[in-house]
């Protein structure tokens, strides 16, 4: 079983640049088509199951808008 993760996108910062969408190895990111942020952008969001909490989207995000969590398994994983 791959690790399970989730992300929280802070919409005060996200500008919908889509760099995370292109970088996500699981292809689970997209832009939310149903709403816009206060600045007028469609923000990034998880569009399907399968986030592993790998952290890649956080590495490319120019706005430091993404908080990333990974579910704990029996073994405690090191944080990066």
């Amino acid at each position: 079983m791959p690790p399970k993760g989730r992300i929280v996108v802070n919409e005060a910062y996200c500008k919908g640049c889509e760099l995370c969408v292109g970088a996500c190895p699981q292809n689970v990111l997209g832009l939310a088509a149903d709403h816009i942020t206060a600045k007028g952008y469609h923000p990034a969001t998880l569009i399907s199951e399968g986030c592993t909490g790998c952290g890649i989207c956080g590495i490319i995000c120019p706005e430091a808008a993404i908080t990333i969590y990974r579910e704990k398994t029996g073994v405690v994983r090191a944080t990066s």
């Binding site: 989730r6 956080g58 908080t67 990974r70 579910e71």
Partner: peptide, 8 residues
């Protein structure tokens, strides 16, 4: 249940 991988 969760480890914080990254935050601002």
């Amino acid at each position: 249940t969760e480890t914080l991988v990254y935050s601002r």
